[in-house]
Amino acid sequence: MDLSVSFGGLTLKNPVLTASGTFGYGLEFTPYGDLARLGGFVVKGISLLPREGNPMPRIAETPCGMLNAIGLQNVGAEVFLRDKLPRLPWRETAVVVNLYACSAEEFGDLAGLFAGEEGVAALEVNVSCPNVREGGAAFGADPAQIAAVTAAVKRRAGDKPVIVKLSPNVTDIVAAGRAAMDGGADILSAINTLTGMAVDVRTRRPRLANVVGGLSGPAVKPVGLRCVWQLASALPLPVIGIGGIASAEDALEYVLVGAHAVQAGTANFSRPDFAFRLVDDIAALAAELGLDSLDACRGGLRT
């Protein structure tokens, strides 16, 4: 069957992407599978300048998931463009760059660096960072700021589709999605991690040096499904489903609630060949369910 999907200016050979922060720069996974077999992958969040990230410990395992507070450690845009991108099979698979900045201007400057890069298929905007100019509250919590950041990226993105990755840490995710749409987003992706914490009762210390971190993994899938369902039901923009995907069933659940594609995240840590196997497993499951294409079941939730 044909697993290809096309939406928001992006065409993928199959609906499997990998989530930012769980797949390095792609190169880390080459011993375990052929990157060209993926629909695409979203690289680790990139900032204008290199970042060293947060102090250790940065990760904690939790039931059916994990917390992370890596702090966006990354090589910076210049090193990515010089040392990483040329080594990626971007002619055969979609390389999506995840952008991280701390002001709308900075987001725009960052987008401008990738707008003319042939090897970049799309830009994904991470609005979960604190806005240093506005007192440190996350961009993603304020629809007006989401719109401003999206517009700043879109203005400088050239012909690259702009994906806005939404945070679930809001009361009304549809309002956040609508703000991104108003700012000119081509595609929404949801969800980013849920803010959480873990405590060691013996040492009385938080398990993360940053105290709080982002929860991911199968534990968050119900929240992800709910958010994607709400967004896809309310807005005309295509949505990429993210959150706790650990099997082909999980991926098709996201398609049923309205997703055009999915991003596998934490499961890449549970086994490094996960995303590659997911492509095969989705094909097998679709065949078993008698689907000719994913379009045949998208949004087909019976309510």
Binding site: G24, E28, E52, R58
Partner: peptide
């Protein structure tokens, strides 16, 4: 460490140049 292959950045050590 979570992944063992350099992707999660959960296991970093500080090197002599102060980099993780």
């Amino acid at each position: 460490m979570a992944c063992g292959i350099g992707a999660c950045l959960g296991c970093v050590a500080r090197d002599a140049a102060g980099r993780n």
